[in-house]
Design a protein around this nucleic acid. Structure first.
Length: 502
DNA sequence: TCTGGGGTCCTAGGACCC
DNA sequence: TCTGGGGTCCTAGGACCC
């Protein structure tokens, strides 16, 4: 940072963040699923492509997971029903295609447009994961700290790998260089090329070369600005927001461009005359708090370019869930069967990941879109598929007469017991060693079998009934320990409020 | 908009404890 | 017994993100 800025050059954000300027990258893969499909099926390149799930030809269910930019040109959006999306796309002239994968249609005449043809491919997560792991390999190679946010997105702290120093390669970096290389894509003072920009380009190029898929990268002194920057010039973008320019970079953007502002918040802000990030930054913080609660304060800081969250690797998951849509039905057998299947699925995933859970819940969505959730906590953490099923079914009873269009099962209050860490990903085969676990016993009040997974040696073979009887003491100890753990993760109260971008 | 699936975090009210 | 304050845990719902 020394030498980077002249004294008094700090604009907008006064002495607030006087710490050393960090260099944060936000890497966001461009329409990742579609890019993956094109990787293994190059014919799809350049064509409007929709990747979705839950769709069978002739059905109306199913939603768009990802649309290629070509498809977006036709108005296709994420989460749109597949059938609707396919309506928007040009038709394949030859129609037919036994696969049912092309956007053909019987009722309409073939697309008049040129050679473009709308395509549909079903989501193939396994394949995307394999591509993603190649991307992550590059990221981890390029940064000391990587926070993987999702399959197609990550933050990198590369402060120790690069710098904000200006690159004055050859002639003075003047905007006059019309004949020179294309101007930096950097928003803000694009004339000031930085070393960080070069490094970001390197990372971006490596991803494309080694994983075969395109990415957009945002470069900024903090996470939230980097996030917005990566979004600012998609696809294939590289936007650099040097220190001191964050607030001015954000100012003209609509509030919805800020991470954490969705349709509801956008609307709420619009109602009080706030349309842009700049408006947010200028607004009285108390006004924002009055409208949005504590999030208002946070939003205010973000809009002013203040965000001192450190980039940290993502921890273990907090919950696991499975849900599925079905044609709206009140039929009890159907509902119970669905929930039982989901329960088994969730329990299996939990076991695969080596985690215990203490809360089991369900979700029942009634038309048009009333989301109901119910949950029940157990006295202690367990790994017990049959218990997941019985509790889930029990909770479902409340909706015995309800018409539902979607059902879900969730486990939470997860516990990745220390002893099982080593076998993460598969202790199922080994840990059920010899011991006829309590699985067969039916000593619980409701007769459900108990298969409590021991957390440590001393808890071997403890059953749920044991838990219930065992003095509150045990439970309290457990609860207390958990509290300490989560406290430790948040050094200050601020962080617990502020960590939206997990 | 007649909304898919998997997550995270926050809030509010009630129960319970001291 | 009409009554204070603080704290935690639990559940349900909501907003948001990809």
């Amino acid at each position: 940072m020394n030498g980077g800025t002249l004294p008094g050059m700090d604009d907008a954000h006064g002495p607030a963040d006087s710490g050393p300027d960090r260099v944060v990258f936000h890497v966001d893969m461009d329409c990742f699923y579609a890019s993956c499909e094109r990787l293994r099926e190059p014919e799809l390149r350049g064509e409007p492509l929709v990747v979705g799930m839950g769709y069978e030809p002739g059905e109306t269910a199913g939603a768009v997971a990802t649309a290629s930019y070509e498809a977006r040109e036709f108005g296709v959006e994420s989460a749109m029903p597949i059938s609707e999306a396919l309506e928007l796309l040009p038709r394949r002239a030859g129609a037919g295609e036994g696969t049912g994968c092309e956007a053909t249609d019987d009722g309409k005449e073939p697309g008049t447009g040129g050679t473009e043809t709308g395509r549909y491919r079903p989501v193939d997560l396994e394949f995307y994961e394999s591509v993603a792991s190649e991307v992550k390999a590059v990221l981890h190679d390029c940064a000391d700290v990587v926070r993987e946010v999702s399959i197609d997105e990550a933050y990198l702290d590369v402060t120790d790998r690069t710098a904000w120093d200006a690159v004055d390669a050859g002639n003075g970096s003047d905007p006059d260089g019309d004949d020179g290389p294309a101007p930096s894509t950097a928003a803000g003072p694009a004339d000031a090329r930085t070393v960080a920009e070069g490094y970001a380009r390197h990372v971006k190029d490596r991803i494309e070369r080694e994983a075969g898929v395109p990415a957009s990268v945002g470069v900024a002194p903090n996470m939230s600005a980097a996030k917005v920057a990566s979004d600012a010039d998609k696809p294939d973008g590289l936007v650099v927001v040097p220190p001191g320019t964050v607030a001015s970079f954000l100012a003209p953007l609509p509030t919805a461009a800020l991470h954490g502002v969705g349709p509801v918040t956008e609307r709420t802000l619009a109602d009080i005359g706030i349309e842009t990030a700049g408006d947010v930054a200028e607004a009285d913080a108390e006004t924002l708090v009055a409208a949005l609660g504590d999030r208002g304060r946070l939003l205010s800081r973000r809009a002013r370019g203040e965000d001192d969250r450190e980039v940290t690797p993502r921890g273990l998951p907090k919950s696991l869930s499975r849900e599925s849509s079905l044609p709206a039905t009140a039929d009890e057998a159907t509902k119970r069967e669905t929930v039982a299947t989901l329960a088994a699925d969730v329990a299996r995933r939990a076991r695969d990941r080596g985690c215990l859970y203490r809360t089991i819940g369900i979700k029942a969505v009634e038309p048009p879109f009333d989301v109901n959730t119910r949950a029940r906590s157990l006295p202690g953490p367990v790994d017990d598929p049959s218990l997941v099923e019985s509790v889930a079914l029990d909770l479902l009873d409340e909706f015995a007469d309800a018409r539902v269009r979607k059902l879900g099962v969730r486990v939470s209050k997860l516990d990745f017991a220390a002893g099982d860490q080593a076998t993460l990903g598969g202790f199922a085969e080994e840990d059920t060693d010899g011991e006829p676990t309590a699985g067969g016993e039916t000593d619980r009040p409701d007769g459900a079998p108990t298969g409590t997974r021991p957390k440590g040696e001393e808890r071997e073979r403890m059953t749920l009934a044991d838990w219930a009887e065992a003095d509150v003491e045990t439970g309290l100890d457990d609860a207390a320990r958990h509290d300490e753990e989560s406290e430790d993760e948040r050094p200050d109260g601020q962080a617990s409020l502020g960590d939206w971008s997990s």
